[in-house]
């Protein structure tokens, strides 16, 4: 199942904080019609209560998302930050994560999109994949890497 699209990759996002980052990256999902107008606020609200930062082996990331009622069409938006943006850690909100990339997820039904979710975990645990994401210098390259590993 395809979940990465050419209009859902972005480089050099300059964000002041996690909310700014979510609003900028979420705008791609909204402008493309993948999510409803309630999605971005719902993601921001959820991130404040239940952060989504993760510390991986070679990179720190965040995977902001919310419930399926805010989603039209399943997708994953892949964004690289110009400077790391501070997110709370998923397992412990007091731990801070300096997110270099965002995998912003629009999931309609986790059971139907389990393959996408499994692919995401595969990326998180795959040093080679992370290296390719880090090395992507153009939006085209970023899309190709995202599509290859996430779908």
């Amino acid at each position: 199942m395809q979940s990465c699209y050419e209009d859902l990759v972005i480089l050099d996002v300059e964000a002041e904080n996690y909310e700014d980052a979510i609003r900028q990256v979420g705008a791609l999902l909204y402008n493309g019609g993948y999510v409803k107008d309630t999605y971005i606020d719902a993601v921001v609200e959820r991130e404040a209560d239940f952060p989504t930062g993760l510390i991986l082996q070679d990179i720190e990331i965040a995977m902001p998302h919310t419930a399926g009622i805010h989603v039209n069409k399943p997708a994953v938006c892949v964004a690289k930050m110009k400077h790391p943006v501070e997110f709370g850690h998923m397992g412990d909100p007091d731990t801070k994560v300096k997110a270099e990339m965002l995998f912003m997820m629009a999931i309609l039904d986790p059971d139907a999109q389990i393959e996408t979710l499994q692919n995401m975990m595969g990326v998180f645990q795959n040093s080679q994949a992370v290296a390719e994401f880090k090395a992507a210098k153009t939006e085209k390259e970023l899309f190709e890497v995202a599509h290859k590993y996430i779908g």
Binding site: R46, D49, F50, P51, T52, M63, H65, T66, A67, G68, M90, M105, I107, P110, D111, I114, L117, Q118, M120, M121
Partner: peptide, 15 residues
């Protein structure tokens, strides 16, 4: 258990 009750918990469940 995860924040939204869906996405990350579904990842953990499948694993």
């Amino acid at each position: 258990v995860c924040g939204s009750g869906t996405v990350s918990s579904a990842m953990a469940a499948s694993k």
